[in-house]
Design a protein around this nucleic acid. Structure first.
Ligand SMILES: [Zn+2]
Ligand SMILES: [Zn+2]
Ligand SMILES: [Zn+2]
Ligand SMILES: [Zn+2]
Lengths: 148, 148
DNA sequence: TGCTTAACGAGACTGAGTCCCGATATTGTC
DNA sequence: GACAATATCGGGACTCAGTCTCGTTAAGCA
């Protein structure tokens, strides 16, 4: 949920891509627009299907290619909740809108959450172990309020 | 790294399986013994290969079946570092030997670490969000000391 | 010893993700 | 605008972790 006054992720992503020397291709633009309109993570299959059913057809190879590029540039977070399907969601600069996920082991619902202390603890660990942290993932599993 | 005086994980796992009414099968025993001798996580493929090259052959179906059972019983932790391969490692009761992983984005090395404050932060988040946490995974990504 | 049924394993199958390679579109230059 | 250079795209074959089926083996028990 970006702040109302913050620029759209699409804008940020496109600027970044331009500055990295990428050309502007229709397939990539379609994937970016779709991801920008999402609340939380989407799988490659979901992206492919939604684009196929829309007016802008995009091949599977392109979807995966674009997702890889964006993850590589840090414009996208790859979320893996353990069901064998990778999901992707927009990542804002400076860690804005940075969050993690809770997965209900009963109904499968994906609930996002954020916590500063958790983030601090992670940074502290990395420093203590002498590791240069580039990214991290946290997944909590259990019962959601509905299923408890 | 279990404490020297602590019982072997094999023992603990077998007792638990017995108390749950499982019969003692050769395939399951082989998988358990192999996992007990490991320092950190092993993939299903690695387990299958190591058992196949040893004297105790175990079919793939059995390996996956046993791993699922053990994860279900909380005797095993499923570790997914994002390369499309699930790994498994012994889980001790009471969270003893509980740890998480750092993955080097350059050389792929898997480095285990533990941190009480991180664990506390996770429990706090779950409570605040009204979620009943059954398990969790944390993966840090970046450069290890060797590759930095 | 004999019965019941859990445990096992060969191998077919599924599906996410990868690759190849020819077709198409973008950008810079003239 | 035309053209060359090359980034982008996509159909479809392919890989391979993980799943399923079903007939066989063997643990537990009376
Ligand atoms: Zn999310
Ligand atoms: Zn739920
Ligand atoms: Zn480990
Ligand atoms: Zn490294």
């Amino acid at each position: 949920m970006p702040h109302a006054e913050a620029p759209r992720w699409t804008t940020y992503a496109n600027e970044r891509l331009a500055s990295e020397g990428f050309r502007r291709g229709g397939g990539r633009a379609a994937v970016i627009d779709l991801l920008d309109s999402q609340e939380c993570a989407l799988s490659a299959q979901e992206i492919e299907d939604q684009l196929r059913s829309g007016e802008r057809k995009v091949g599977r190879a392109t979807v995966y290619r674009v997702l890889d590029e964006l993850v590589e540039l840090g414009l996208l977070n790859k979320v893996e909740i353990g069901d064998g399907v990778a999901r992707f969601e927009a990542a804002f600069p400076e860690g804005a809108d940075h969050h993690h996920h809770f997965v209900c082991s009963n109904c499968g619902k994906l609930i996002p959450f954020e916590d500063d202390e958790l983030e601090r603890a992670l940074r502290r660990v990395a420093r203590r172990e002498g590791l240069v942290m580039e990214s991290h993932e946290v997944t909590l599993r259990g019962r959601c309020p509905d299923c408890d």
